[in-house]
Amino acid sequence: MKKISFWIKGLLLIIVLYFIFLRPIPYYIERPGSAEDLDPMIEVDGNYAQEPGKFMMTTVEILQATPFTYLFQFLPYNDIVSEAELFGDIDDYEEYNTLQRYYMESSVHSAVVAAFDAAGLPYNLDYKGVYVMSVTDNSNFAGVLQMGDTITEVDNLKFKNTEEFIDYIKDLEVGQTVSIKYERNGTEYKSEGDLIKLEETGETGIGISLVDQSTVETDPEVVIHSGEIGGPSAGLMYSLQVYSMITNTNLRAGHVIAGTGTISEDGTVGPIGGIDKKVIAADKEGATIFFAPDDEIDPDLKGEYPDYKSNYEIAVEAAEDIDTKMKIVPIKTFNDAIEYLEQLSPVSSRFEPEQSQVNLAA
């Protein structure tokens, strides 16, 4: 009996430990991630940058909570978010990752375009089709199409842009059968279905939300190996690395430069989430300069949320909190970053760029 009692107690202990330390709960921990050197991630005509210094992208780590790790929220720069807050209307983590991969691909595309535009070099945009972001429940292609598919043809017709695609569909009749070709993970599929009346606009449609899917062709050829990293926030740093390589300019001058921010094709730098955690990650990896989006806050938004702060303000507060010597530099456009880097002296000198001031929104 004592032996049986011992095994029962041991089993109960294992069960308790499982529920405390391993059992997932519907919450996620957001905390400082990594600062990744871009030299081994970006190649131009098969070559990698070898100049002194680094450009680094920064990340936020997201991990599913357990009852034990739920307590991490009380640690500095560890935040707890619910599944609803993280996923929104997305059904599961797989779809979330698919969306993040799309954002990364789009970020790579925009970064290359912004860099080549700034360098005055030509490039070609190759339209691939429409990227499926979601499928409505009442769509006759529900269960066929899924997030991440690219529709390449409708009724054996190819289109030059998404506007042509939409115009063709909306000129057809509700209930009319269309044939589509679409790609998923490199494989082409075909399907047929009837068009529906879109609830939002009342127009004829397939029943999907969509965005452009295109690639950019350049000479010299640029390849960005983003790996498993997702999201759009590496855009600014990607564009700086690409620009410095295609123009053969040593912009970093031996400095370790980290940063974050989305990049538009026109060079506009946009805000991102978790910038305070990215400041922590950059500081741990020895960055001496950190580029932060200096997003302008809409007065109406500031009026409704008086405590709302720009990315730059949050980054400055985090830097002051950890007492880092890393300089936080506000960036609105790609050209802002280039101009700042062009005035840097080599790291071997004693010159230190003047700390930029907070540009508070009215």
Rank of each mutant, 00 (worst) to 15 (best):
Y305L: 11
V178W: 04
T66R: 00
G46F: 13
S209T: 11
F19L: 14
I62W: 00
V347Y: 12
I206R: 00
Y127A: 01
Y70T: 13
D92Q: 15
S110E: 04
R350N: 09
G193A: 08
S106N: 12
K2T: 14
D149N: 05
F6W: 10
L301G: 03
K197S: 07
I166S: 04
D212L: 00
F334D: 06
K54R: 08
G267E: 10
I180E: 02
I229W: 04
T333Q: 13
Q64L: 12
K3D: 04
E203W: 02
G267S: 13
F21P: 02
N140V: 05
P76H: 04
Y93C: 04
V132G: 00
G207A: 06
Y312E: 14
L63W: 03
G231M: 02
Y123V: 07
I90G: 00
G274M: 07
N250M: 05
A234Q: 02
V60P: 01
M41L: 12
P26L: 13
S106H: 11
K277M: 11
R350D: 15
A282R: 10
G270H: 14
I166F: 07
L63M: 10
I289S: 04
S214W: 00
T136F: 15
S34T: 11
S244I: 06
T218Q: 08
Y77S: 11
L63A: 10
A282Y: 09
E173V: 14
S356V: 08
G193D: 14
M133I: 13
P330D: 14
H109M: 09
A84L: 15
A84W: 07
K278F: 01
I29Y: 02
A234E: 01
D194H: 06
G227Y: 12
N78K: 14
E320D: 07
A281Y: 10
L86C: 03
Y238D: 04
A362L: 13
F6L: 09
G120M: 05
G207F: 10
L121R: 04
V223P: 12
I338P: 09
G270N: 10
V130F: 00
Y182L: 01
N311Y: 04
M56G: 02
D194F: 01
T177S: 15
W7V: 08
Y308S: 11
D117L: 12
V256G: 02
E188V: 10
G120S: 08
T162V: 05
A319R: 15
R184W: 01
L344S: 06
A114I: 13
T333A: 01
G254F: 05
D194P: 00
Q146K: 12
L125E: 10
Y168L: 09
D295C: 03
V347C: 11
D298Q: 13
S345H: 11
T260Y: 07
P346Y: 04
F116R: 03
L99P: 00
Y102T: 00
P232N: 00
P24K: 09
L11G: 14
A282I: 09
D336S: 04
Q241D: 13
I169F: 05
